[in-house]
Amino acid sequence: MPPRLLLALAFSVGALGGCFLSPNVPPSFRYTCETDDDCAVVTCRDDVLPIRDAEAQGLAVGCDTPEAIADPTSAYGYRQRCVSGLCQFPCALASYQNDCPTGKGYNFCFNGNCAHLCGTDDARYPDADATCPDPQKCVIFGEDIDLGALSAFLPSGGGGQSGGSSQFGGSSQALDLNELEGAGICGVRCDAEGAPACAPGEYCSGAMCLPGCDKPGATPCVDGQTCVAFGGFSACLATCSADAPCPEGLVCAPGVNVCVTTCIGADAVPCTDGFTCDPTLEICVPDDGALTTG
């Protein structure tokens, strides 16, 4: 081999190997785990810290406290849990924008976990499942996930589908379903073998858990909550009674004894379509009056 070629080869290998820069971790990658202790928290300074270290340091929860604002390293805002052998951030479909760490590229809440999009670049990654960590698969919107059913839980103006809004959700995210069609989301289908059960008050719609505690096979509500169904929607709401009043900003709906937002007063929340504010009950009631508990 000519000396010059040998020299160039040596420098090339040296440059390749010597430049072991911290590799860019793919956004959809999830660290493996066996227990929650194998996972991490995100501190208020946006540092990723193992849960073991966070507990050893006595980090507090929440970044809005004066202590956390003064010292962002003394508290954490997000905590992972071990689900299906992967460290994931828990979330709810209606509030994933607040539940998932900001600036990490999370696009959606799929089956209770913050998730990333996949299948958006078929040219470079023809096998979309290969871009998701095992055992997750790329669940395609429009094929595996019924956009019509999903749109009911998204705010109106959700993009081309039959927009709707949940009385219970209070969701504020503006998700354009038109952009999602054809793409997918990395996650474990709820109907897959060994998949974790849906969150309380949700049911498995095929691949994705959707709110609906009155649906067949839905996960029961937790203790202290009651499944309330009206207007085609159902949700688990906190029960209340004379001995157990509702938290501030909520009122105890008579008859069903669940805490709901009030439509009168300082904490009033306007009623959505299909609901009317009852001045006596101080809550929004369905126009057809169909309100059931289960």
């Binding site: 290998v13 190997g17 971790v25 493996t32 992967l86 290969a130 871009t131 960590p133 095992d134």
Partner: peptide, 22 residues
């Protein structure tokens, strides 16, 4: 250098094949 490059490749291959813990 070769060992370092090998570790880099191992990282890249492990993201979606076998997985990695923290």
């Amino acid at each position: 250098g070769v060992a370092s490059y090998g570790l880099r490749r191992r990282l890249d291959n492990s993201y979606f094949d076998g997985g990695l813990s923290y």
